[in-house]
């Protein structure tokens, strides 16, 4: 595709920044990026941990092992994604992660006729098992599933979740960009539809309530409503996460609130 997939441009950001940011929003916990040793990933927030794959050529289980080991003591369940899934939605992540339970070690969606091991959730405690499989050179994800308790979620089950149905009705979260044509087709699509509201002095005269725009990042949303993302402004995503990072990814259905950083009274 001419350049590393992770750094492909995506509405003013990169694929890796977008996917990592969406996963972060979905899991409400730490994010680990596993790269080939020395691979450039561009400028990323300090909150993301970047680790090198221990041994190249081990396929997805190699990266999974590094990631799960890094998350030991920091969480129980990990969502795993490839970096070429820019249409991933936090609601999809939450639904898949939520399927892992006391009795289930992994949830691997079965969407569009395929099992999706790189759009799946795994219990962090599976790390030793994955390491054993790597040592035995059993590198296919299906070997992991054979050795643990897992479930799948098909299209119907996923779309039974009201948030997934509302924000990702085509289950585009599992769309991978396998070649240049995939990338160009996906990139040509509109940015997510989001709602933006400005408060206090940031509100344009005469404008009240929310406006609907298309924006893939916080920076694009700020530009669209004429708000400068300077130290005196912060944004809240869906009334929750606060950011002023212009590359913060937005997803379909997000509500962005721009407020004065001088919060007190």
């Amino acid at each position: 595709m001419g350049s590393p997939k992770a750094l492909l441009e995506w509405h003013g950001s990169t694929l890796v920044r977008r996917v990592a940011g969406i996963v972060a929003r979905g899991v409400d916990g730490p994010v680990v990026l596993v790269r080939a040793p020395g691979q450039a990933l561009g400028c990323l927030p300090d909150s993301f941990d970047v680790l090198d794959d221990v041994e190249e050529g081990k396929g997805p289980l190699g990266g999974l092992c590094v990631g799960l080991e890094a998350l030991a003591d920091r969480g129980e369940i990990a969502y795993v994604s490839s970096t070429d899934a820019p249409l991933l939605h936090p609601a999809f992540v939450r639904r898949v992660v939520g399927e892992v339970s006391e009795e289930i070690d992994a949830c691997v969606p079965y969407v569009r006729g395929f099992r999706q091991p790189l759009a799946a959730a795994y219990r962090v405690s599976l790390a030793p098992l994955v390491a054993d499989l790597l040592a035995a050179d059993r590198l296919r994800p299906s070997f992991l599933l054979e050795a643990c308790r897992w479930s799948d979620l098909d299209d119907v089950a996923l779309l039974a979740d009201p948030d997934v149905a509302r924000f990702d009705p085509g289950l585009d979260s599992v769309t991978n960009l396998n070649n240049q044509a995939d990338y160009e087709a996906a990139r040509a699509g509109p940015a997510p539809e989001v709602q933006v509201e400005c408060f206090g002095v940031l509100r344009a005269p005469g404008r009240r309530g929310r406006v609907t725009i298309h924006a893939a990042t916080l920076g694009s949303a700020a530009d669209a409503v004429g708000v400068p993302l300077n130290p005196h402004v912060v944004a809240a995503l869906n009334g929750d996460q606060i950011s002023r990072d212009p590359e913060e990814p937005l997803a379909q259905g997000d509500v962005v609130s721009f407020v004065s950083a001088e919060a007190g009274g």
Binding site: V201, A236, G239, S257, E262, A263
Partner: peptide, 22 residues
């Protein structure tokens, strides 16, 4: 800009913003 909120709407500007932020 650091005092714009206080000048233009006063501290009551917090109300809607805080409502949006739970």
């Amino acid at each position: 800009p650091a005092t714009a909120k206080y000048r233009e709407l006063g501290t009551l500007a917090n109300l809607l913003a805080f409502n949006a932020l739970s």
